[in-house]
Simulated assay, not measured.
Amino acid sequence: MNNEQRFINLLGLAQRAGKLITGEAQVLQSIRGQKAKLVVISTDIGQATRKKISDKCTTYQVSLLTFMDRNVLSQAIGQPRTAVAIEDQGFAKALLKLNIGEGA
């Protein structure tokens, strides 16, 4: 299993464990509330949304990864989304360790 598949599997596991926040507004709220440990956005997210999330992550010092398109991200978590926040340090660390995607 390659690192991309591991990343997708870990996102799904985080979703089932209830450690994943989905949706633009909820992700921004999680960042502002300093609960988000890592934010993952799709490669095809809108420019305005990308900037808004990126700026918040920079302000609150939250790691941000741009990885996979919205279809793959949606499939991984079981619902149509372009942005997710991981609120668990263990999952965030494991996902970052895989060294997938690019920092935005």
Rank of each mutant, 00 (worst) to 15 (best):
T66Q: 13
Q15S: 15
S54E: 15
R50H: 13
G78Q: 00
K97M: 11
R32L: 06
K93H: 14
L11K: 00
A36P: 01
I53G: 06
Q75C: 13
I31C: 01
G46V: 02
D69G: 09
F7G: 06
T22D: 04
S74D: 05
R6T: 11
G23P: 03
S63C: 09
R70D: 10
D88I: 01
L38V: 01
Q47H: 08
L65R: 13
N71D: 14
N3F: 12
G90V: 11
T22P: 01
S54V: 08
K97W: 08
Q26T: 11
A76Y: 02
N9C: 06
Q89G: 10
D44T: 05
L98R: 02
P80Y: 08
A25M: 13
S42V: 02
T58L: 15
I41N: 00
R32T: 08
G46S: 09
T58K: 14
Q34A: 11
A83C: 06
N71Y: 14
Q61D: 12
I86S: 05
T59D: 14
L73M: 14
I45S: 03
T49A: 10
E4S: 12
N99S: 13
V62T: 14
G12P: 00
I21D: 01
L73D: 02
V84C: 12
E24N: 01
N99L: 07
M68W: 06
Q75L: 15
M68S: 09
S42M: 04
T66H: 04
V27Y: 00
G18Q: 11
N9E: 13
I53M: 03
Q89S: 13
A83N: 04
K51C: 01
N99A: 14
G33I: 08
Q15V: 10
G101H: 05
A14H: 00
E102H: 10
Q15G: 01
I53T: 04
Q34F: 03
G90F: 06
A48D: 08
T66G: 05
G12E: 00
N2I: 13
D44I: 07
L64R: 02
G46H: 09
G90M: 08
F67E: 11
S30Q: 03
A17E: 13
Q47D: 05
A36W: 04
E87D: 10
R50L: 08
D44N: 12
L64I: 05
V84A: 10
K51A: 13
L20H: 06
G46N: 12
K19C: 08
A17Y: 09
I100T: 07
Y60C: 11
E87K: 05
V84F: 10
I31Q: 03
Q26N: 15
K52P: 00
L20G: 03
N3Y: 15
A17W: 01
L11C: 04
F7N: 09
M1S: 10
F67K: 13
V27Q: 00
S63P: 15
Q61F: 10
F7A: 08
Q15F: 12
N2G: 10
I8V: 13
V39S: 11
N3H: 15
I21Q: 07
S54I: 07
I45W: 04
K52R: 07
K19P: 06
G46A: 14
T43R: 12
A83G: 05
T49I: 14
D44Y: 05
L73N: 03
G103S: 10
L10G: 02
Q15W: 08
F91L: 04
I100C: 11
L98G: 01
S54T: 14
L64V: 02
I77G: 02
L73F: 03
S30C: 08
G78I: 11
L95N: 03
L64G: 01
A83S: 12
E24Q: 03
G12A: 00
